[in-house]
Simulated assay, not measured.
Amino acid sequence: MLYALVMTALTVAYRLVAATALEIPNFSPVMALAFCGAIYLREKWLWAVPFVALILSDLWLNHYYLAQYDYGWALKELLLRYGCYGAALGLGWLVSRRKSWSAIFGGALAASFVFYLVTNTAAWAVDKTYAQTLAGWWQAMTIGHPEYPSTIFFFKNSLISDLSFTTLFAVVMEYAALRAGKPSLLTPANPHPPKLHYAH
């Protein structure tokens, strides 16, 4: 619990600093926090913690963007993003039922791809500068608007951040389990398992 709360607080702090000072586009730990929260937080009501942290930081960032750039997020945009984080939560729950390193990385990859697919498809659907055709959808998924960095650039940043922060969170939580004497994926497999003796 302590590790999870500390990581949540650090996630919010990093997100605010990254968005306002570092200005690294689409490099955020929030997706990884939602995904790993469902894997490691046993009490389901604690799954709301990442969303509370996200909403509070969104409120502050929205105020910051309005003051600095006269730009804010629309409610539909926020709800769509929260839906993607909810999907990450569901993927984390599935992974928690049969946890392994391959399942964790596969789930993080899937969560990142869902966010990319859903948000860019939604942008294509509402942005009338895109042709409402398959070619226009492909432009929204790959190039985006020519005056901005490509959509693939943003997806690459999201993918790297999701995998990196998922690895960090998972290692910390597995280490906490190891210290507490609980089963952990960090526990090396015994190369010489004890021999079983059967009575005849």
Rank of each mutant, 00 (worst) to 15 (best):
T20N: 05
P183S: 08
C36M: 13
S102M: 13
A123F: 14
I39H: 13
G86Q: 03
Y148M: 03
I104T: 06
E77R: 12
T166C: 06
A103K: 12
A103Y: 13
S161E: 03
M141F: 15
T20V: 05
V52N: 02
D162E: 04
L185E: 12
I24A: 09
P194G: 08
H200V: 08
Y64V: 06
Y82N: 05
T11D: 03
L168T: 07
S184D: 07
A9G: 13
W93F: 14
V171K: 11
M31P: 01
P146F: 14
L5C: 04
P146A: 14
F27N: 04
Y69F: 14
L89Q: 07
T121F: 15
P188H: 03
D127G: 06
Y14C: 01
W60I: 15
A140E: 10
H145T: 06
W60S: 12
V17I: 14
A9C: 08
L59P: 02
L186G: 11
V172L: 11
Y3P: 01
L56Y: 12
R179S: 11
W101C: 07
A111S: 08
T151R: 06
C36R: 06
L94K: 12
I152N: 01
L89I: 05
F153W: 07
F113A: 09
L54V: 05
K44F: 13
L159A: 00
A9I: 11
G181H: 06
I160M: 01
E23V: 10
A177E: 11
S100T: 13
T11G: 12
L33R: 02
H197K: 09
I24W: 15
H200C: 02
T20E: 09
R81L: 12
T119G: 02
T121S: 15
A103G: 11
V95E: 02
V12E: 02
F35H: 04
S57H: 10
I24G: 03
R179Y: 02
F35Q: 02
K128G: 01
C84M: 04
R179K: 15
R42M: 01
